[in-house]
Amino acid sequence: NQASVVANTLIPINTALTLVMMRSEVVTPVGIPAEDIPRLVSMTVNRAVPLGTTLMPDMVKGYA
């Protein structure tokens, strides 16, 4: 099973992502692959992402 990116904290809308905000976890449904974490750093989220939420491609500006 592939690990996905999961919010390690509440990420407010329009926040630039940092490494400490994200962790990898095997979850269903599958979200952004964990190997993309380095690429996500400094990208911003377009909605509030609660703790434990899987990051989906449409949640990160410029990812999809």
Rank of each mutant, 00 (worst) to 15 (best):
37 I>R: 08
31 G>M: 02
59 M>L: 08
12 P>I: 04
7 A>G: 03
52 G>E: 06
26 V>Y: 07
56 M>C: 08
55 L>K: 00
5 V>C: 04
24 S>Y: 14
7 A>E: 00
56 M>D: 05
2 Q>D: 15
9 T>S: 10
64 A>M: 15
20 V>T: 13
57 P>Q: 08
36 D>M: 12
49 V>F: 03
21 M>D: 06
44 T>H: 13
50 P>H: 15
29 P>L: 06
19 L>H: 13
12 P>H: 12
54 T>Y: 00
14 N>K: 07
18 T>G: 05
13 I>E: 15
5 V>N: 01
38 P>K: 10
38 P>D: 08
50 P>Y: 08
27 V>P: 00
32 I>H: 00
44 T>K: 05
1 N>A: 15
62 G>A: 10
27 V>Y: 02
51 L>H: 14
31 G>C: 03
28 T>Y: 13
40 L>C: 03
24 S>R: 05
23 R>N: 06
18 T>N: 07
17 L>H: 00
63 Y>M: 06
54 T>D: 01
1 N>H: 11
35 E>T: 11
24 S>Q: 12
41 V>L: 12
23 R>C: 04
41 V>M: 08
44 T>N: 06
30 V>L: 09
20 V>W: 10
23 R>P: 02
61 K>C: 15
4 S>Q: 02
30 V>Y: 14
11 I>A: 01
28 T>W: 04
22 M>T: 02
54 T>H: 03
18 T>C: 05
38 P>Q: 11
13 I>A: 11
29 P>F: 03
52 G>M: 06
49 V>D: 01
18 T>K: 06
46 N>V: 12
55 L>D: 01
56 M>S: 08
61 K>N: 14
29 P>Q: 05
44 T>D: 05
56 M>F: 08
25 E>C: 05
32 I>T: 01
7 A>M: 03
64 A>T: 14
5 V>D: 02
43 M>T: 05
49 V>I: 15
10 L>E: 10
26 V>K: 04
27 V>Q: 04
25 E>F: 04
57 P>L: 04
31 G>R: 02
27 V>W: 03
26 V>G: 06
34 A>S: 14
16 A>E: 13
46 N>C: 07
4 S>W: 03
43 M>D: 03
10 L>Q: 12
61 K>W: 13
13 I>R: 07
62 G>Y: 07
52 G>D: 14
41 V>T: 11
28 T>R: 03
49 V>N: 01
22 M>D: 02
50 P>M: 07
35 E>M: 07
38 P>M: 07
63 Y>A: 05
43 M>P: 01
12 P>W: 03
46 N>H: 14
42 S>V: 03
64 A>I: 13
9 T>E: 13
11 I>K: 00
50 P>E: 12
20 V>G: 15
31 G>I: 01
37 I>L: 15
41 V>D: 03
61 K>S: 12
34 A>N: 07
28 T>M: 12
43 M>L: 15
61 K>D: 15
29 P>S: 07
47 R>E: 09
61 K>Y: 13
38 P>L: 12
33 P>F: 08
7 A>W: 01
56 M>W: 06
6 V>W: 01
50 P>V: 07
60 V>G: 01
28 T>I: 09
57 P>Y: 07
11 I>T: 00
5 V>A: 14
11 I>W: 01
29 P>H: 04
30 V>I: 14
59 M>N: 05
49 V>T: 04
30 V>M: 13
6 V>T: 05
4 S>A: 03
53 T>C: 09
13 I>K: 09
51 L>R: 10
15 T>V: 11
21 M>V: 04
43 M>E: 05
50 P>D: 15
62 G>M: 09
33 P>E: 05
35 E>V: 12
49 V>S: 02
22 M>Y: 02
7 A>H: 01
58 D>P: 06
43 M>Y: 07
22 M>I: 14
54 T>Q: 03
20 V>E: 15
49 V>A: 08
53 T>P: 01
44 T>F: 07
47 R>Q: 14
55 L>M: 13
54 T>G: 03
61 K>T: 15
31 G>Q: 00
27 V>M: 07
17 L>S: 00
35 E>S: 10
23 R>T: 11
54 T>P: 07
12 P>C: 06
57 P>S: 10
36 D>H: 11
14 N>S: 09
52 G>Y: 05
11 I>V: 07
62 G>L: 09
33 P>I: 14
16 A>L: 07
28 T>Q: 08
48 A>R: 10
9 T>K: 12
31 G>W: 03
14 N>V: 03
12 P>T: 12
16 A>Q: 15
21 M>Y: 06
51 L>D: 10
25 E>A: 13
32 I>E: 01
43 M>I: 04
25 E>R: 04
18 T>A: 11
52 G>Q: 03
13 I>P: 12
34 A>Q: 11
63 Y>L: 07
27 V>H: 03
39 R>D: 04
31 G>F: 03
11 I>H: 00
32 I>K: 00
39 R>K: 11
48 A>L: 14
29 P>R: 03
48 A>Q: 11
55 L>N: 01
25 E>T: 09
50 P>T: 10
19 L>P: 14
11 I>S: 01
41 V>H: 05
20 V>I: 13
60 V>Y: 00
50 P>K: 12
47 R>T: 15
9 T>Q: 11
34 A>D: 08
57 P>A: 13
38 P>G: 11
29 P>Y: 04
19 L>V: 14
32 I>C: 04
46 N>P: 03
61 K>G: 09
42 S>G: 14
26 V>I: 10
6 V>R: 04
40 L>D: 00
36 D>A: 10
21 M>G: 03
7 A>S: 09
53 T>V: 15
43 M>C: 09
50 P>I: 07
8 N>M: 09
21 M>H: 13
16 A>R: 11
1 N>G: 12
25 E>W: 04
3 A>M: 08
31 G>L: 02
53 T>G: 13
23 R>F: 04
10 L>S: 13
7 A>D: 01
46 N>S: 15
47 R>F: 15
34 A>W: 06
29 P>N: 06
43 M>A: 11
1 N>Q: 13
23 R>L: 05
45 V>K: 00
14 N>W: 10
20 V>R: 12
47 R>A: 14
44 T>G: 05
55 L>A: 01
19 L>I: 09
59 M>I: 05
22 M>R: 00
21 M>C: 04
39 R>Q: 07
45 V>I: 07
38 P>C: 06
59 M>K: 01
17 L>G: 02
8 N>G: 08
17 L>K: 00
8 N>A: 14
63 Y>G: 04
36 D>I: 05
12 P>D: 12
59 M>F: 07
39 R>M: 09
46 N>L: 12
41 V>F: 05
10 L>R: 08
11 I>E: 01
57 P>E: 09
44 T>L: 13
57 P>I: 05
53 T>S: 14
43 M>V: 04
33 P>W: 06
19 L>S: 08
16 A>H: 15
20 V>H: 13
16 A>S: 14
12 P>R: 10
23 R>S: 08
50 P>F: 11
63 Y>N: 03
30 V>W: 08
18 T>R: 07
14 N>F: 10
26 V>S: 13
11 I>P: 02
9 T>V: 11
61 K>A: 14
27 V>C: 05
38 P>I: 09
13 I>Q: 09
36 D>F: 08
4 S>V: 02
18 T>M: 09
26 V>E: 15
26 V>L: 14
36 D>Q: 09
30 V>A: 09
43 M>H: 11
46 N>G: 07
14 N>L: 06
7 A>Y: 02
51 L>I: 14
55 L>T: 02
14 N>T: 06
50 P>G: 13
32 I>Y: 01
4 S>E: 01
28 T>D: 15
4 S>P: 01
41 V>I: 12
1 N>S: 14
21 M>E: 03
6 V>I: 13
19 L>K: 11
45 V>N: 02
40 L>P: 00
12 P>A: 09
19 L>Y: 11
49 V>M: 05
60 V>D: 02
18 T>E: 11
6 V>H: 01
28 T>L: 06
9 T>A: 12
64 A>N: 15
17 L>E: 02
22 M>H: 00
53 T>Y: 06
26 V>F: 08
6 V>L: 13
10 L>D: 11
21 M>I: 03
39 R>V: 07
2 Q>V: 13
57 P>M: 09
17 L>P: 02
10 L>I: 15
13 I>Y: 09
15 T>W: 06
41 V>P: 02
3 A>D: 14
35 E>H: 12
18 T>F: 03
56 M>P: 01
7 A>F: 02
58 D>E: 12
22 M>S: 00
59 M>R: 03
64 A>S: 12
34 A>K: 07
56 M>E: 14
32 I>M: 03
26 V>C: 06
34 A>G: 12
47 R>S: 13
25 E>I: 04
63 Y>E: 03
18 T>Y: 03
13 I>G: 09
50 P>A: 11
26 V>A: 10
31 G>P: 02
24 S>A: 13
29 P>I: 06
22 M>K: 00
25 E>S: 10
48 A>S: 14
8 N>E: 07
15 T>I: 06
57 P>H: 11
6 V>F: 02
2 Q>P: 14
28 T>P: 00
59 M>H: 11
42 S>I: 03
